[in-house]
Amino acid sequence: MDIIEHVGVPRYLHTDFPLGNPLGNPFDRDMQLSHTSMALELLRSASEANTIQRSPYSWDGDPGWRDDYSKVTNENRAELAQAGEARRALQTEMKKLNPRQLIPNP
């Protein structure tokens, strides 16, 4: 939500789910259809840029996912620093092989 507000989009349906499942819970066809219908309705009804609507649905798993996302703790700090080093080394190699290769977001 904060990224969308910063970036700016014409219309946005906010589905408050872990990243990876914007349509809702995996294998929940009814919820996926509902979210699609809500998005289409927003497309039709919005009259100005940055129109944001929230879905009433919520994740059916542990609500602790919000605390978990990209969490930096004393326990994983060294591991993250090491992963960053490894990633930069890999990127340097990739650039050498193919300067046009896109570097994805981590």
């Binding site: 789910f17 872990p18 990243l19 990876g20 499942n21 914007p22 349509l23 809702g24 819970n25 995996p26 294998f27 929940d28 066809r29 996926q32 798993g61 542990d62 996912w65 978990d68 996302y69």
Partner: peptide, 14 residues
């Protein structure tokens, strides 16, 4: 995506 709590095996979820 949040791979410690969910998965992307159902393409219908995205």
């Amino acid at each position: 995506w949040h791979d410690t709590v969910t998965h992307t095996r159902d393409t219908g979820s995205f």
